[in-house]
Simulated assay, not measured.
Amino acid sequence: MNDSIAYYSDPYFKVFKVPQWRATLYRFLSVKLWGNIPSPTQRKISRLYSSVYDKPISKHIIKPYIRANYSDKQYLEKFKPPFGKTEFESFQDFFIREFREMPTNSSDTVWPCEGLLCDVGKIRDIATTKVKCDERYVHTVFGVAKGEIPRDYTFTNVFLHNKNYHRIHAPVTGTITRIQHIPGDLVILRPWIYKQNPSLPAFRNERVNIDITDSHNRVWYISIVGGPAVGTIELPEKIRIDATIKQLDEIAMFYLGSTCCIAAPKHPCFHQKNTFVEVGASY
């Protein structure tokens, strides 16, 4: 890897070993109870919950949160408040923090986000998922027709914990060839409660899909998936169809919770399932 800094983030990420009985219970609560509430109601509840973190008083959570969640106590020095602010005015400001200096990497392909690589495999090997009695294939995550994504492409799913950096960047330089919003549910994202099917939420949750065609005319399919308490998935103004995008340009931002799925023409070179990835690291 040719990263300019070994780690911009705190690379510690615990993969929770949830007992089967507890995972079954959590899945039931997430999918069968919360998941059967109408999606508009889920979004209203999520917006109400997330609004707490927009209040000025919530900024007092930031320092205790950093002490509890990061081994690097100077972690916040690597970032700046969003939207040109001079200070973090709420916890939400911390959540959507910006890099003071973007990572640099000479590799042609990099990771677009930070988090736990909870699922990886060839498109041809990804099992179907049943959603409300409907059998869904991996292409449904990205909102394309069956067979459009080549079978030898690699599917990856990066789970962004609340502690992770929550902006998504372009993995390659290229042209944006498709933008799609898919309404859906907001079931819990934590992969360890779904055991052998950690990507289940990506098959059913609300998401924004962005395709980037690189200089070799290969399409990189990116699906930005929301979860409970995600009030918004926001795209920068310049992200539009036919726009030219440079590697590591920002393409999306989450307001609380998320996961990012990719269907890529190459397999990750340095990472495997249940390892930590970060923005700008070689893909």
Rank of each mutant, 00 (worst) to 15 (best):
T175A: 02
T156V: 04
G227P: 00
L117A: 01
N217W: 01
Q272G: 09
R100W: 03
P150K: 01
H161A: 15
C260Q: 05
A145M: 05
T24R: 12
H166N: 05
S50Y: 05
T128S: 13
K238Q: 09
I212E: 00
V18L: 15
V277I: 02
K17V: 14
F16K: 10
L200G: 00
V187K: 02
L33C: 13
S30G: 10
K238C: 09
P112H: 01
K32F: 14
W220I: 00
L256Q: 05
P19G: 08
V15P: 08
N217M: 02
I176K: 00
K78M: 07
I241F: 12
S258D: 10
V141W: 00
Q272D: 07
V219D: 05
P228R: 07
C269G: 13
F142C: 03
P56A: 13
E237L: 11
D125F: 01
I168P: 05
D3I: 15
K146C: 10
Q272H: 07
I45L: 15
P11K: 01
V120A: 07
G35V: 05
D249K: 08
K63P: 09
T104R: 09
Y49T: 08
S215D: 08
Q42P: 02
V18D: 14
Y7D: 08
A127T: 12
F94M: 09
V208M: 03
I45M: 15
P265W: 00
Q196S: 14
Q272M: 09
I123N: 04
W21E: 11
R97K: 10
V172C: 01
L29Q: 07
E114A: 03
N157K: 10
Y26A: 11
H181I: 13
C261V: 12
D3W: 12
H181T: 11
G231V: 03
I179S: 04
L189K: 02
L235D: 08
E278D: 02
A229C: 04
W111E: 01
R207K: 03
E101L: 10
P82Q: 07
S282Y: 13
R190V: 14
P268K: 03
T156D: 00
F13M: 06
T275E: 15
H216R: 08
R218W: 01
V131S: 05
G115E: 02
C261G: 06
Q272T: 14
A229W: 04
D10T: 02
R218C: 06
W34E: 07
T232N: 15
I123E: 06
R167W: 04
P11D: 02
T173V: 01
A243F: 11
R43E: 15
F159L: 10
I168C: 04
T213K: 10
A243W: 05
K130M: 15
S71Q: 13
C133I: 07
D72I: 04
R97A: 13
F95V: 09
Q74H: 11
K132Q: 12
L76M: 06
M253V: 14
E77C: 05
I126F: 01
P236C: 10
A127Y: 03
V52S: 14
L248D: 03
E237K: 13
M253D: 13
E114K: 01
F254S: 04
E135V: 15
F95L: 11
L33Y: 08
V172Y: 00
P81K: 11
N197S: 07
P64M: 12
K146G: 06
I57V: 13
P40D: 03
N217R: 03
I188Y: 14
D72M: 04
Q180F: 15
K122L: 15
F254M: 06
S51P: 11
D108S: 09
